[in-house]
Computed example of a mutant assay.
Amino acid sequence: MRLLHWAIAAMILAALVMSTFVMTRIPASSPDKVSALIRHISVGSLIFVASMLRLATRGRTVAPPALSSGMRWADALAIIVHRLLEALTFLMIGSGIAMVIQENLIAVFLSVHGVLPVGLEALPLRAFHIGTASLLAATLALHVCGALYHQFILRDGLITRMSFGASAPGAPEDGEPAAL
């Protein structure tokens, strides 16, 4: 589960960075845009497969006990953020698939000199995809801030127990903070 968590996190970050800082700078008329979209869709497909594997595996693995922040509202927010990350990820994948189908982009990708349809930027699904990406990035930032708060302010070892090679899946004993 840790491997899937970090792999999905890295791929989501890569897809967000790729689309925000690379793909937006490539004109739609450039063949490089088609190549960039193929890479973006490939990463999105890997995120989908890894996320489905994570969902299928989750029910068969023992989750470590939740770590409380000591604030009921923050603990409730953590649950919401985790579910929102999953939902937004699947909304991104779904809207991406819908755009590929709607604009018949498979034919563009399979052709030797594929050219994107004119007006692709104006698609309502594209606006939805970009809006969802913004929400996903904000939710991801909130998730990272919560993890850092646990690790460095509460010192309860949250990130340590999510790292590879962590020996115990639970929180430190007797309520003591984990050593840094």
Results as ranks from 00 to 15, higher is better:
1 M>Y: 09
4 L>W: 04
5 H>C: 02
6 W>H: 13
7 A>S: 14
7 A>H: 01
10 A>K: 02
13 L>P: 00
15 A>S: 15
17 V>P: 01
19 S>H: 08
21 F>G: 10
23 M>D: 07
25 R>G: 01
27 P>I: 03
30 S>Y: 03
30 S>H: 08
36 A>H: 05
38 I>A: 09
38 I>K: 15
39 R>M: 12
46 L>G: 15
49 V>G: 06
51 S>Q: 04
52 M>N: 04
53 L>H: 04
54 R>S: 12
55 L>C: 11
56 A>Y: 09
58 R>F: 07
58 R>M: 09
58 R>Y: 07
58 R>Q: 10
59 G>Q: 00
61 T>L: 10
68 S>V: 06
68 S>C: 05
69 S>N: 07
70 G>Q: 11
72 R>W: 11
76 A>N: 13
77 L>W: 13
83 R>H: 15
88 L>C: 05
90 F>E: 07
92 M>P: 03
93 I>C: 05
94 G>W: 10
95 S>C: 14
95 S>G: 12
95 S>A: 15
98 A>T: 09
98 A>L: 15
99 M>W: 05
100 V>N: 05
101 I>H: 07
103 E>A: 11
108 V>G: 09
109 F>R: 06
111 S>P: 06
113 H>E: 13
117 P>F: 03
120 L>I: 15
121 E>L: 09
123 L>H: 13
126 R>G: 11
126 R>Q: 13
130 I>L: 13
133 A>K: 06
139 T>W: 01
140 L>W: 08
143 H>E: 01
144 V>R: 00
144 V>G: 03
147 A>Q: 03
152 F>C: 01
153 I>V: 15
154 L>W: 04
155 R>P: 02
156 D>H: 04
157 G>K: 01
159 I>Q: 04
160 T>A: 12
162 M>F: 06
166 A>S: 14
166 A>E: 05
168 A>Q: 12
171 A>M: 07
177 P>T: 02
180 L>D: 09
